[in-house]
């Protein structure tokens, strides 16, 4: 079986509502059960508070809610945000860039990949993670697929250039790890990319 249990912290304490608390009885509440007609709800019921609670009408107690109840977030989302890690050009392998919704390797990409392949041949003990990324346009799920295809496209070309596929693992980050957080073509063109993370032997 593939199931592997992993416990996550559930933010919040799961609690069941105490049931059967005093005062949740079985009869219709005063003031609301006068039947059809005018003046169905007197403005001020002249009953004892105890009676009011003790004489409840078929009170349906709210059950427990799934997924816990605690730690409600009263402030805005992300209060106290940590600065997001920015992907940067790193290591000896150079980043490959793509057109919108494309995983095709253009001339620049092909030349860069030849250089990257040369480095990998010179360092046979290193392996690399090939990370596929997209710009923010398009939906998150489709971009995961597109990032995967970009990564595969790069990996497959490196294999054609003689690199052992066992040294290249692909991962798609979709639009989740932009190199440039901007929202224009300038930023997008930097985000449609495949980056390499070199792994030491």
């Amino acid at each position: 079986m593939r199931h592997a249990g992993v416990m996550l912290l559930i933010a919040g304490v799961f609690f069941a509502f105490a049931s059967g608390l005093a005062g949740c009885g079985s009869r219709s509440g005063p003031g609301l059960d006068t039947g059809p007609g005018p003046a169905t709800t007197p403005a001020t019921p002249d009953t004892d508070p105890r009676d009011a609670m003790d004489s409840g009408a078929d009170t349906a107690e709210l059950g427990a809610e799934g997924f816990g109840e605690g730690e409600l977030i009263s402030e805005e989302l992300g209060s106290g945000l940590v600065e997001q890690p920015r992907a940067t050009e790193r290591g000896p392998l150079r980043t490959i860039y793509f057109s919108f919704d494309s995983s095709e390797l253009d001339d620049v990409a092909l030349r860069t990949l030849e250089e990257n392949a040369r480095w990998l041949r010179q360092h046979p003990d290193n392996s690399a993670v090939v990370e596929g990324h997209c710009d923010e346009r398009g939906t998150i799920e489709y971009n995961l697929g597109l990032g995967a295809r970009r990564a595969r496209s790069v990996r497959d070309h490196l294999v054609r250039l003689g690199i052992d596929s066992g040294r290249l693992r692909t991962i798609s980050y979709g639009e989740e790890r932009p190199a440039d957080p901007g929202h224009d073509e300038m930023a997008w063109s930097k985000n449609r990319r495949v980056e390499f993370q070199v792994l030491e032997p």
């Binding site: 593939r2 199931h3 992993v6 559930i10 799961f14 997924f67 799920e141 697929g145 692909t170 798609s172």
Partner: peptide
């Protein structure tokens, strides 16, 4: 999978580099 009691189970720990949606 995240259960309402907080248990988390992974479905596909090994197959493929992308399992999504």
């Amino acid at each position: 999978l995240l259960d309402e009691d907080g248990t988390v189970t992974t479905l596909h720990p090994k197959g493929g580099d992308l399992n999504a949606a």
